[in-house]
Design a protein around this nucleic acid. Structure first.
Lengths: 193, 193
DNA sequence: TAGAAAAATGAATTTTATTCAATATTTTAT
DNA sequence: ATAAAATATTGAATAAAATTCATTTTTCTA
């Protein structure tokens, strides 16, 4: 089993999924683009869904890493949360194909929606709740904000803006502007007056 | 073309989609449950995706109506936004099958993700931005909050909490508690100090 | 009530994901 | 270096469903 062949298949799948959408992507086209036979893709991945989920898992590793770095570079917890929001939206701006895949196409993948345990995704969300808890400990934020609710709320807000941006043709509203608005509302909302 | 037959097919589809998930639902089973032949479903709906989208469109009508009533019953804009959040989450709590369908299964529907123009969905989101603008006019809220960003942000936050609740087995966190937390953060966040 | 129009049927078709028997390549033991 | 064994690859065959459409049934019209 050749690791580079696995990579070739993943790379090809990213391209095909992003261009055609998950549902309309043919395993045959992915195999062809990767320069292998159809059957070979099934030696490296269980099925089409597993291929999609593998893309997610592998893509999240560097994304989490970069996000950690961006947040660690900030001093206050408020700055860390602002960094989460603007870094996520920068990624969406700078890597539209991958954003399309992670936000839009991934959700058509039945195994991802139903079977996926979400380890990597939880890891990502916990960056938000960790920053919240830090800010509660040092008095920046109100202590009555529930960390689990908060992290989902922040991610949900950012993800909705991101998805809408990705889908929309016009790109009327700048993501940098959205990032500032979301941050301001959320941070005002949890600030310890 | 019999309107009641169309209804029977829709009703059957709701049951089957909710039980088996969109992807694993067979048109044959839907037809059987509706007491018609497979081909008949194709006289009333273009395809499986159109059937799913029709459920969404029809379900949104009473949902929007109830949401409008709930919001209109409140005096201040802040109360209206609070009503949006808690009414949405009450619906998720009280109609788990429909919530599963609208939040989870709908997103596996390729035509919904790609082709749907989102008229009904926009109508729903506009309830939030209308309340925001009202609150900005009467001085309750800061005037610099962007309505389009705000409505997406609020919906995204609520939807993420709702989806997580629907998917999770444990239901650890009460949706009423989540509604209070989200409202408090958001309303603090936009309040005109 | 016969003929036309509309609606309904379900077997046949089509499209793809997935499997697996056959083939090719690589590794191991002598 | 060589043959047997193990591993990897192939792509034609299979299977599963969505969708179509020629045929049949029902409803309408004059």
């Amino acid at each position: 089993m050749d690791a580079s062949k696995r990579e070739r298949i993943l790379k090809a799948a990213v391209k095909v999924f992003a261009r055609s959408g998950f549902y309309n992507s043919k395993m045959g086209e992915i195999a062809q683009k990767a320069g292998v036979a159809v059957g070979t893709t099934y030696l490296y991945f269980e099925d089409k869904d597993d291929l999609m989920i593998s893309i997610f898992e592998e893509e999240m590793v560097p994304l989490i890493k970069k996000m950690k770095e961006a947040m660690d570079a900030r001093i206050t917890a408020a700055e860390k949360i602002h960094a989460f929001i603007s870094t996520h939206l920068s990624f969406v701006q700078n890597e539209p194909d991958m954003a399309q895949l992670l936000e839009v196409e991934m959700r058509q993948c039945s195994k991802f929606i139903h079977g996926y345990d979400g380890t990597r995704f939880k890891e990502y969300l916990d960056l938000v709740s960790d920053a919240l808890v830090e800010g509660q400990k040092n008095g920046e934020f109100r202590p009555d904000v529930h960390a689990t609710i908060f992290k989902q709320m922040v991610f949900g807000a950012v993800d909705q803006i991101a998805t809408n941006y990705t889908i929309s043709k016009t790109k009327r509203i700048k993501l940098t502007e959205s990032a500032e608005q979301i941050s301001k509302i959320i941070l005002h909302g949890i600030h310890n007056r």
